[in-house]
Nucleic acid binder design. Sequence first.
DNA 1: ACCATGCGTGTAAACGGTTTACCCTCTTGT
DNA 2: ACAAGAGGGTAAACCGTTTACACGCATGGT
Lengths: 362, 362
Amino acid sequence: MARRTASEGGERRPTTIRDVAAHAGVSVATVSRILSGTYPSAPATRSKVMRAVRELDYVANANARGLAGASSRSVAIIVNSVVSPHYAHVAQGVQAQAALEGKLCIVGTTGGDPERELATVQLMRQEHAECVILVGNVVNNDAYRERMTEYARALALAGSRLVLCGRPALGPGVPALVVEYDNTGGAYAITSHLLSAGHRRILFLGRREGHTTPDSRIAGYRNALADHRVPHDPGLELDGTMERGEGYRMVRQRLEAGPPDFTAIFAVNDLIAAGARQALREHGLRIPDDISMVGFDDLPPSADIDLTTVHVPHEELGRTAVRMALERGTGSADRTGQAEHVMLGTHIIVRDSVRPLPPDQR
Amino acid sequence: MARRTASEGGERRPTTIRDVAAHAGVSVATVSRILSGTYPSAPATRSKVMRAVRELDYVANANARGLAGASSRSVAIIVNSVVSPHYAHVAQGVQAQAALEGKLCIVGTTGGDPERELATVQLMRQEHAECVILVGNVVNNDAYRERMTEYARALALAGSRLVLCGRPALGPGVPALVVEYDNTGGAYAITSHLLSAGHRRILFLGRREGHTTPDSRIAGYRNALADHRVPHDPGLELDGTMERGEGYRMVRQRLEAGPPDFTAIFAVNDLIAAGARQALREHGLRIPDDISMVGFDDLPPSADIDLTTVHVPHEELGRTAVRMALERGTGSADRTGQAEHVMLGTHIIVRDSVRPLPPDQR
DNA sequence: ACCATGCGTGTAAACGGTTTACCCTCTTGT
DNA sequence: ACAAGAGGGTAAACCGTTTACACGCATGGT
């Protein structure tokens, strides 16, 4: 196909900095300096340039800007899914903080597939994002740690950085930042809440051996039981993922097998609690009159079902991730291996889903 | 600060295409061609290059690539908030479709502030996104339409395109794509559902004059009333925004003013329904035994509260937006003003929140 | 044998900014 | 009045890719 010649009127070329310079009667360098703002300039020149920018509706080409070595301007976040409230809230935090710092936010989803995760990290690497934030529950095995270590090294080499959000730290010497929240502490506190209401047989919904989030939550559950000298019955720990339907399934199966042999439920998260609640209701059991229940996350469904739960600072998690990454970005070139690690606190939110166990049932 | 000299060992420069070329013993052009894949090349050369890429862990610089005129590779979506399920699901669709086409997805949030919206659009323009998708409820006034028209023109000029998602179309001649869903039809259908159950006094929660989404939903409500020859009582339309707390507030105020003068509720969306439900329960009213209720959106809360509602194809909305934009992108240069317009259907999801009105109460 | 053919590769010029070495021109101090 | 210096502007060298064009070398037809 023949290239259009300039003589054809239709030719529309996006406005460049050169056009602005010409329109304002100054040189390109002047325009560039005035726009980046980091240089003294005569007010008269300045206003001339700004007027030209406005009249031509000029916006800089981010590609050219990035190429020429100006500091980059994007922050990347990679999650399993955008619709899961947990990830959505973290993403919101990342987005908010990024916007605050004048950066934009690139989002990738993996659906939990390591293949897609790798592909997405490569994309972010191409994009020269200032940091890549990986968030969420994972299986913490050797393969995982190796993969993360590779990501971290590759990103560090390119002047970017890896931030693990709600994930366990890698070994020292790996240039990754970590921002976590206190799963075990929260689980301990809310289990204690049930225990001090007299409950001793507490069903745990959503065990998942090897997965970091359920693992650390169940650890808090077990610690609390031990500290209150309540015997630990592994039969009260039900396996399942963290989706709503699983909560329904687990409780339904349990109730179909026989009458409840527990007086309270600790759901690994609020979604599981919502599912469990539905199954309970189908069996004529009401919360908190018949069964007490607590959850974890303090996300939307929990307010609707009056659930006592553990508040997780999701947005703060995201904001902190960005802040940490950008903070260190401005400092002097730092040697790898100085990984920073932040742990955010969690706390109980009391609503109306726990009833003290009558003394005769204890 | 003195620039580091090459003699200092610490100097780490990201791997470039030149390094790959040198390592493989070919020219940069050859590497570029082999990597873009769209060019014949000798198998031997090809494998040499791929090996070098692997050994050096090379990833292309997206900025340089974009600058040099390769087709761009990102899709932008701008929403009010990422945590709102409505937007989250649309964003999920956009993300999924973008990933499918090998593009990445840039997300911006505005919090409903036109100022921030403008700033975000400018950022996306800088970034040379292939399309900018604006989604959601807005006040449809002159100022709004002017703003959108400007966006559309500026984006079209830069080879990008504006997509309005769930928003009304602009006039002809404005180069914007539109993908909507049938608010009025859905509202009509679900209002009819209540009417055929015998309800005649249906409280509408969430009127908001001038806002496109509530406006078109209330229009469906009114049409259905008219077609069923049910007198329209403006006193049954309560003003409010679309957040959960508002549903609670509206119903609570109404019930505190006196006993219910309605037998059913049509909430402008599921969140409002959830809030309304809470207020009803606090007054001892149960759904559907005492009051029937329907919502709109078919988003997470509605399953938890067994709400009959209108299904909105949120993800499909997002996917369609991307598909439309990219489709037209590959075609020949099209004249402005050929705006395309897609309307997706909605349908009722029947759960357990509507009860036929006993004959003696009709 | 010779020339058109065409494939595979190399060369170099964009792409649109930022950065910087350098120059000009006005102040200002003595 | 003149040298020094600072503020403000200019021109050119990059940044890492893509791509139009040139070129060399087999290949096959006549």
